[in-house]
Structure formats: C-alpha cells, structure tokens
Nucleic acid binder design. Structure first.
Lengths: 231, 231
DNA sequence: GGGCACAGTTGAACGCGTTCAGATCAACGT
DNA sequence: ACGTTGATCTGAACGCGTTCAACTGTGCCC
C-alpha cells in the first residue's frame, strides 16, 4: 500500500519528507513567537511547546537559538529583495535606484525593529554564524549585494570603471552602516533613519560622481586599494 | 577603641570604607579572571569564589556581569589616554597626531583581542550600558573624544573652521569603525588593523584638507548638517 | 544596655540555553 | 516475521546569569 501522504524514497530526492516538515514547523513557530513576543521572551521551551515537540528536537535541526534567528533574517532578506527587484527592472539614475534599494531594506525591516536590537547583539560577534561576514550568511549577503549590483548595473549615471567593480560591496557596507544606525534609532517610527537614507543617498551619489574627477582620482584609487587589501 | 584600619564616618565622606573595599576587590578579581581565562569561562560564581565572597554580593555592587566588563573597559580607556597624552603635548601635523592617537588605542587594546569579541557583543546592543553611546559610558567616551580633541587642537595643519568643531567626534566615529574592524580581524597580531590605521590616516588627512577646497565645500557642509541632525 | 535603621552579605532557587544517553520510528534485507 | 540500521525525537540534567527573602554586622539614639 502506498498512502498518498508518504513519499517513496526516490533516489534523487535527498531530503526526507518528515525531517523537512519538522524543520519548517520549528522555524515557522519560532519566527511567529519572535515576532509576537520578542526575542528574550521567546524561549526554546516555548518554541518547542508551541510546536508540539520537545526542546531537544529543535536542537536536532538547529545548533542554537541564534541559528533560528538566522533563518528569520534570511526570510526578511528575501522579502527585501522581492520588494525592489520590480522597481529596478528599468534603468535609471543612480541615486534614484539606490534610494529604492535602501528604502526597501528599511521598510522591510521596520516591523522587526524591537527584535533587531537583540539580533544584532549576536550578529556582530566575530565567530557568530549570524555575522553578516560569516560563511553561513553568505546566501543572504550575496542576495543583498546582488540587489546593489543591480542598482549599479542599471544605472544611467556615469561611474568610474575602477570603482564600478567594487561599488556594490561598498554600497552594501553603507547599508550595514545604515542598519547599525537604524538599530540604535529610537526616534518614533525610526524617522531619523529615513532622514539618513534620504540625505545620504545624494551624498553617495555625489561622491561616486566626484570619484571620476581628475583631482580625486588618486584618492579614490588609494582608498579602493586599501579596501581590497582589508577585505 | 578606634582601630587604625577603620575610618570614622566623617560627615563629608559619603562612601563607606568597607563597601568601597569590597567593590574594588570584586572588580580586580573579575578583571584578572577575564584576562586570564576569557569572558565565557569566567563565571559570576567563579569571581565570587576567587574573591572569597558570595554570588549575591557581587550583584549588590554590580547589576550585571556586563557592568563588570564596563569597569574593565574604563580601565583600558584610561591606559590608552595615558599612553598618548605625552606624545600629543607638542603641536605637529594633523596626520602624525592622528596616527599617535589611533596607534595608542590599538596597541592598548591588543592584549584583549580575544576578550573584545565577547565584549562588543553586548556593546552594540542598543539599551546596553556598555554601548559606546550610552550614558553609563559617557566618561570613557568623553575621555576618548578628549584625546581626539587634543589631536585637532594641537594640529599645525589647516582645518576648515566649520569642520573643526565636529571633527573630534567624527574621528571618534572613525575610531569606533577601526575598533569594529579590529574585533573581526583574525590576521596574526591583527596586522591588518595596523595596516588599516597606517593607510586610513593619510586618507583622512587628505579628506580633511580637501574639505576646505571650493569644489567640495558644499558637500562638506551638507554632510556636516546631516551628521548634526542624526546625532 | 537595648532597640533601631540600614548597609552589607548570604546561598538557595529560578528560568534560561544547551547537552546527551537513550527511546522511538520508518524503511529495508533476509 | 524479524532483526538491523540510521534518522528522528524525548526529557532529565547541567551550568549559567540573575533574583530574593533572610541574615549579619555596625553605628546611633534613647
């Protein structure tokens, strides 16, 4: 007999059905609780109970509570990417496109501001899997940089060719900086961060334009060389 | 009878002798253990035992383990300040002085690199007392900015007067950035951070000089205005 | 001396993230 | 049917930071 719900283990299918299901159940429950009651108040026991499992079971799929947050972060990243790919489809001026990308990120993250404070705590820890520079968050990082690559690619503004290659990564660093500010931004609705994006975008735009000017070429080149060495 | 060790409670002296003694004992023990065996392996029970006290007693003086680290951080800051005030006594070129300040900081922190990873974890948390922007760390912050003020004050390089007022704080932000890089720097002896300081100082020097140029004045002014709004 | 107020001190207890030795389940060969 | 194997799941237990009701010491007033 072959019940419709169970799947035969066809050689090609590596992921067992049950495991994947449990894993998703844990993530979904965790994300929901994180969202509803914050990071600290969401305990591993709470997640397990709400999902109808044991604590240890969650640890079979995720090495730590932080890794659950990682999953959460990835979700947000996907949303942010989705929110702006449409609006970056047609080429346009650099500053406009950059504003779309930064704006989408800030807007997507907005509901999680309270939560992000706890999140960043582990994100900046050097060895942490949640570090934006870690191997584990490579997918999320590359997606984010991919968006900024799209910003640069479809830009009608003239960009110094030497700068162009590294610009997406540099913009991503700017984005990290904005995020860092945003996390600490206690103004109502994080309006100061909105202000920061609003004003920083033209500044970056001007800096990018200026990098082509003869007087600043060497400075630009030197800064880029340093950046490459330190990466 | 009046034992020589005990002090009469003269009205002016608010701090009781015994309390201050215990407090210092706790800090000293904690700092020693942090240094010897790292942050994670140093437990509150361990500190209490090594100091010959109970766990609860430490909590009578310090609200959390993090606050003990705060004390540790303050110590390092004082050392860093002491390490460069001499060398900043006589005026000199801006870049030279900046190098002294940044160099002193990196060198002073060097022994605590492994420890700093755990430290920064709580330092970036928005509400944390260890946050470099928090009220609790105001003394340490002001000392650090004070050094950078001295760098600017005694500088023989011409500096845009509008920039001059905010420059110490901006340099302090640079310093925070360098620290952030340093914490994540896994190169042997943190040589990459040394490289960063070595190369970033001339870049900053050039940027400061360029801020006076006619073509960049408006950009400079706009950036400063933004900075003041966001502070 | 005796009560009083209060700084200082204690250690058991709490809830947390995490671990681990073992129980349970599903699929397969015989 | 019946092990066997490996993935999946369990919950008690560990060590941690932190809390708290109770205890001790000390100086002071009557």
């Amino acid at each position: 007999m072959e019940p419709a719900t169970s799947e035969k283990s066809t050689g090609a299918d590596r992921t067992s059905e049950r495991g994947e299901q449990t894993k998703r159940l844990i993530v979904d429950t965790a994300v929901r609780l994180f969202r509803d009651q914050g990071y600290d108040k969401t305990t591993m026991r709470g997640i397990a109970q709400a999902a109808g499992l044991s604590v240890g079971n969650a640890y079979y799929y995720f090495p730590s509570k932080d890794h659950l947050v990682q999953e959460f972060y990835a979700t947000v990243q996907v949303d942010a990417a989705a929110a702006c790919t449409d609006r970056l489809a047609r080429p346009g001026p650099f500053d406009e496109r950059l504003r779309v990308a930064f704006g989408a990120m800030v807007e997507t993250m907005a509901p999680y501001h309270a939560f992000a404070g706890k999140f960043i705590k582990t994100a900046v820890e050097p060895g942490s899997p949640l570090s934006p520079f870690s191997a584990e968050s490579a997918p999320a990082r590359e997606r984010a940089i991919g968006i900024l690559s799209a910003v640069v690619e479809g830009s009608t503004t003239k960009i110094d060719p030497e700068l162009r290659a590294d610009l997406p990564e540099l913009l991503w660093l700017c984005q990290m900086g904005i995020t860092l500010y945003w996390v600490h931004d206690t103004s109502p609705g994080q309006e100061k961060t909105a202000l920061l994006v609003d004003r920083a975008v033209p500044l970056i735009d001007r800096l990018v334009s200026l990098a082509r000017m003869p007087g600043l070429r060497s400075l630009n080149r030197e800064a880029l060389k340093l950046y490459r060495m330190l990466r």
